[in-house]
């Protein structure tokens, strides 16, 4: 039987879509405040550093970053197909490739904190 990556990428897509629906709007709001030069206390270096130094904080940041990327990569792949782009393999390789690299980098940076 031919092996398919569909369950894996679809699983990451569904998990990412659900997670980002819950967390991304409020996070964008928080960094929107920072964009106005008025970041809330949580974004002060000491506070965010303490959050990311904790393994639960690391895990939360890692999962949010990684699933955001996988979710977007998969959904943009289907959206670009819908827009008439037929270079599916190239789009899939680029999107999933960026997600994989982003996932590894997120883990690497978080371990250093």
């Amino acid at each position: 039987m031919a092996k398919s990556n569909k369950p894996l990428v679809w699983g990451l897509f569904a998990a990412g879509g659900t997670l980002t629906a819950f967390v991304t709007p409020v996070l964008v709001y928080v960094t929107l405040m920072a964009a106005y030069g008025d970041p809330p206390a949580a974004l002060d270096y000491e506070n965010i550093q303490a959050f990311a130094a904790n393994w639960l904080g690391k895990l939360a940041l890692f999962v949010v970053i990684s699933l955001s990327l996988w979710f977007a990569a998969h959904r943009l792949r289907t959206a670009l197909h819908g827009l008439g782009l037929r270079a599916d393999t190239a789009i899939a390789v680029a999107g999933y490739g960026i997600s994989a690299v982003g996932t590894v980098l997120a883990a690497y940076y978080l371990v250093q904190i």
Binding site: G16, Y45, I65, S68, F71, A73, A79, A106, Y109, L110
Partner: peptide, 25 residues
């Protein structure tokens, strides 16, 4: 189609968070 394209911003925001984590490290 608009729903699908919103994922672009979710993805860019993921990269923004990654950039922040890099800076923090």
């Amino acid at each position: 189609m608009i729903q699908e394209l919103t994922s672009l911003f979710v993805g860019i925001y993921g990269i923004l968070l990654l950039w922040g984590v890099k800076a923090l490290s």
